[in-house]
Simulated scan of single mutants.
Amino acid sequence: MRYKGGRDAAVLEQMVDEISDHALFRYCVEARCETSVPAETWLVSLDDRLIDHESGIDLDRYVWGVKWRCLDPGAKLLPQSEATCRWSKALGSDFHEVRIETNAHNLTSLFSDPFK
């Protein structure tokens, strides 16, 4: 089964645009997480006090200890790919790929059934 686009694509794009506090991607067959923080910042931000907002706030470094991340620039539904086609064919269900960019990490997920 191939990704058809159309109304389903519009619904998915709207869902991706509305990702705020929580998103659940069911039937996730692949997930990747990579840093968006430059190596130079990592190098000076390895102090364990930086994993807690209270103990790290006065240090002149990147404070990892927060309870949320800014979606900057946010979430984007990616075009159909070899991987989404392969999974769609193997499982007989449409698969999609989303990339969520934050101020600390970039997340990519291959999934079949999105729910908020």
Rank of each mutant, 00 (worst) to 15 (best):
D47E: 01
E97V: 04
K116H: 09
H22G: 05
V29F: 04
E18W: 07
R32P: 09
E82F: 09
L77V: 04
V66R: 13
N103G: 02
W64A: 01
L43T: 13
S20I: 08
V16S: 11
S55N: 01
P79R: 01
P114C: 05
L24T: 13
R49E: 05
R26S: 05
P73Y: 01
S81F: 12
K67D: 08
D113V: 13
G74P: 02
C33I: 00
C33M: 03
P114W: 08
W64R: 05
L110D: 09
D113N: 09
D17H: 07
G56A: 02
M1R: 04
A10D: 00
N106T: 13
D8Q: 11
K89D: 14
H22Y: 00
D72I: 11
E30I: 15
R86W: 04
L24P: 07
W68K: 07
D60M: 00
V16F: 04
S20F: 06
L110I: 15
D21E: 14
T108F: 04
I100A: 01
M1C: 12
N106A: 07
V37L: 12
H53N: 03
G6N: 12
Y27M: 02
Q14V: 11
L46N: 06
L78H: 08
W87V: 00
L24D: 10
L46V: 10
E40H: 03
A39T: 15
S112D: 10
P73Q: 02
L43C: 06
L77Q: 02
G5M: 05
A90G: 06
N106M: 10
E82Q: 15
V63I: 13
G65C: 11
L12Y: 02
M15P: 03
K116P: 00
V44A: 03
R61P: 05
A23K: 01
A9G: 11
A90H: 07
P73S: 01
H22M: 08
D94R: 14
G65M: 09
H53C: 03
I100N: 04
S45L: 09
N106P: 12
L12V: 04
F95Q: 03
G6T: 04
C85S: 11
Q80C: 15
D21I: 02
G5Q: 06
Q80T: 11
K116Q: 08
P73T: 03
A31I: 12
Q80N: 15
T41L: 08
M1I: 12
I51D: 08
A104F: 07
V66A: 00
T84N: 02
W64F: 05
A9T: 15
V98W: 13
T35V: 15
A90S: 06
D48E: 00
K67R: 10
S88P: 05
A39H: 15
R7W: 10
F95K: 03
L46C: 08
N103T: 07
A10L: 02
G56T: 00
L78N: 08
N106Q: 14
G5V: 00
F25M: 01
R99G: 06
E34H: 11
